[in-house]
């Protein structure tokens, strides 16, 4: 399979303090496959995602090669990069609740994004969004698009972001802990949507999570990060069954302990293991 996204020697550091956040990351995402990035908080998962989109804070610098379809993103102008964002590569944020402009109804963001990339008017955009939103189990999409973010739940907002991805049809979707802020039931529903999203769009995906159960279900490859360093990468099965690095084994075993505990509490009904 051809490499769709290739990241070579990505280094990210804080300009003001000189602190290095990512040391020397190199990894690949194959076409139509899903790479999961796991690791504890502060291990540099989100920074990696934002570095690919070139969306890190202005005081954060990065070096290295990011090749998308063989094109080095580091050399693109701001304007060319802007045209890529949304249309070619799309970011699904961790906190649905704060991802939308709190002062307007969520529809405005959707219309503006679609107008930007497709030149659609409000009516056309609403039509496409309606179909996409219905397919992610958002009933009465027109009503939802006329609501303010605070009037919707985190899970609904997360699904709106997924619905927008369905309309934009990007080649690469980066999901930065999309389920962390959700309750268990919403988590399950959003995971289902991600599975379907992959199926329908046939896109590549980078899926950041510290829920290993979810990773196992969704990802083809796994990247394990710790303190800004990639400690292990490999196929999902090999990571879960034959981890080489001590830290990976530790992650997998803690997950196992949690699961066992959960099972015993729930009386043997392994809901969490899905």
């Amino acid at each position: 399979m051809p490499n769709f996204l290739e990241v070579n020697h990505l280094k990210v550091w804080d300009k003001s303090s000189g602190e290095v956040i990512l040391h020397d990351s190199s990894f690949k995402v194959n076409a139509e496959s899903c790479l999961a990035v796991v690791g504890e908080s502060g291990s540099g998962k989100s920074v990696t995602c934002r570095a690919i989109m070139r969306l890190n804070k202005p005081w954060v610098s990065q070096s290295g090669e990011i090749l998308l379809h063989g094109e080095n993103l580091s050399f693109l102008s701001d304007k060319e990069m802007r045209q890529k964002r949304g249309k070619t590569m799309y970011l699904i944020m961790q906190h649905g609740m704060s991802a939308f402009d709190p002062s307007t109804v969520v529809g405005v963001h959707l219309y503006e994004t679609l107008k930007q990339h497709f030149g659609w008017n409000k009516h056309e955009a609403a039509g496409h969004m309606s179909i996409a939103m219905k397919s992610v189990m958002l009933k009465e999409p027109m009503e939802i698009m006329n609501k303010y973010p605070h009037q919707l739940s985190g899970g609904m907002l997360q699904r709106i972001m997924i619905a927008l991805a369905l309309v934009l049809e990007p080649d690469l979707i980066i999901a930065d802990e999309p389920t962390t802020a959700l309750d268990t039931i919403s988590q399950y529903e959003v995971l289902e949507q991600f599975l379907q999203l992959r199926e329908r769009l046939g896109c590549s995906m980078i899926f950041v999570s510290h829920d290993l159960g979810m990773v196992r279900k969704l990802a083809d490859e796994v990247l394990v990060m710790k303190n800004g360093v990639i400690v292990e990468q490999g196929s999902t099965e090999s990571i879960f069954t034959a981890a080489k690095h001590e830290y990976t084994r530790y992650l997998v075993s803690t997950k196992q302990t949690l699961n066992d505990h959960f099972k015993s509490v729930m009386g043997g009904q392994g809901v969490a293991k899905r």
Binding site: L55, L91, A99, H109, H117
Partner: peptide
């Protein structure tokens, strides 16, 4: 976050 998401949407 909404600023980041707005930018991420291009």
């Amino acid at each position: 976050n909404y600023v980041m998401y707005g930018r991420a949407c291009g």
